[in-house]
Design a protein around this nucleic acid. Structure first.
Lengths: 219, 219
DNA sequence: TCAGGTCTTCAACCAACGTTGAATTGACTT
DNA sequence: AAGTCAATTCAACGTTGGTTGAAGACCTGA
């Protein structure tokens, strides 16, 4: 008797998917609820029924994959700590645990994740609500990574550590925004869509930056 | 006879200033022309009269300070090349020539420049038009900096160089977006508004990354 | 003073917006 | 068969959006 529940909400997912794609492209204010409903092939009123008003929809899109991503990041961090024990893991390994989940999802799974990361890139650089939303959804896990980095960089000044993470965050989000500016700048030699090529460079680039800032002695 | 022209357009500047501030905060779609006119204390129709339609206004805001910034960047690059001659300048010095103008304008001059950089940060991470606009307004000068970096990093792989610049660009734009996320993350220890503190860390961070990627031998 | 622009105001247009409430469907329980 | 509740449709509400055109004000040089 129990199980035979409705597919709960096929349409709720369709709405979230369409919203994700459109918000990623044009931002919160650049997309109308009606357009999202049209793209999801769903009546306008259903958006309010299944999700809520526009602002709620926006946060629902952000939250949906944030949980998955956070779990995977924590898992990878614990793995890399465990496999380096009893030594602390290297800075490279920690950064890789932080960035690799993005690469994995973006290349192995569908366009949805790509859209999601592009959306996050916009949010991260938005003065309007960027600070609040990013802090709410990602910073709890970021703090765990900072804890690990402290062990890998003993004696590191706290401010150097925070700013180093800030630079990594900026480089990472611009990468996953995939604006194709670099395609143009490099005359096609580099491609924003070739995330594997970026990732194998981002990790050593950022690690070198962390070491440069955090290893130096303070007088 | 000649000179006594009207102040040409007092109001045009007021419109551009108001637009700059609002676009920086909420993006192109998040601000209405009517709101800009209200903030500039100007009739709605004057926006179209003095500048043009909304899209033209947006690009006018971007262009206005891009020219000033580009000139200053080129000047600082030439200076640092001249003062290092006949050796090529260091990577640090080149990056500093690229980033210092932002710091200078942002701290010494008014809120207008801060708003402008926040706007550029949004554009840089926007999939909608980010690639196009950034390339159009900034990449000609970026190419000059890449030329200088090639001399400072002889034998550097081209793709490593482009990606290194990409990472620098991401870190730089997130910094000048001033989203205050880092204030929250660091419990007030770091402040997004303290641009001098960021700048003195960004230059060595990025320089270390460039060296790490570009100095390594390719088998 | 008048004629010429330039600049400014006012009002209006229509399309699109987010959101809601009432009415309808459809499937499952009793 | 009737009743229940979630899901869905439809139409409408009141605002606000960007843009325009015609009319008015202002100034300058003749």
């Amino acid at each position: 008797m129990a199980t035979a529940r409705k597919p709960r909400t096929n349409k709720r997912d369709r709405i979230l998917n369409a919203a994700e794609r459109l918000f990623a492209k044009r931002g919160f204010h650049g997309v109308s609820v009606r357009e999202i409903a049209r793209a999801a092939r769903v009546d306008v009123a259903l958006v309010n029924y299944h999700v809520g008003k526009k602002a709620v929809l926006y946060e629902a899109v952000l939250l949906r994959r944030a949980e998955v991503l956070n779990d995977e990041r924590v898992q990878m961090l614990e793995d890399c700590i465990a496999s380096a024990a009893p030594e602390p893991p290297s800075v490279e390994a920690i950064i890789d645990a932080f960035t690799h989940p993005l690469l994995n999802r973006s290349t192995r799974e569908g366009q949805g994740w790509k859209d999601y990361f592009a959306l996050v890139a916009q949010v991260n650089n938005s003065p309007e609500m960027g600070g609040q939303l990013m802090s709410r959804y990602f910073d709890p896990v970021v703090r765990q990574f900072l804890d690990a980095l402290r062990l890998a960089l003993p004696g590191c000044d706290e401010r150097d550590l925070f700013w180093s993470y800030h630079f990594l965050s900026g480089a990472l989000t611009l990468t996953f925004a995939e604006t194709r500016r670099i395609d143009n700048l490099s005359d096609g030699l580099c491609q924003a869509s070739d995330l594997a090529a970026v990732h194998e460079r981002l990790v050593p680039f950022a690690a070198a930056g962390f070491h440069r800032l955090c290893d130096s002695p303070d007088p």
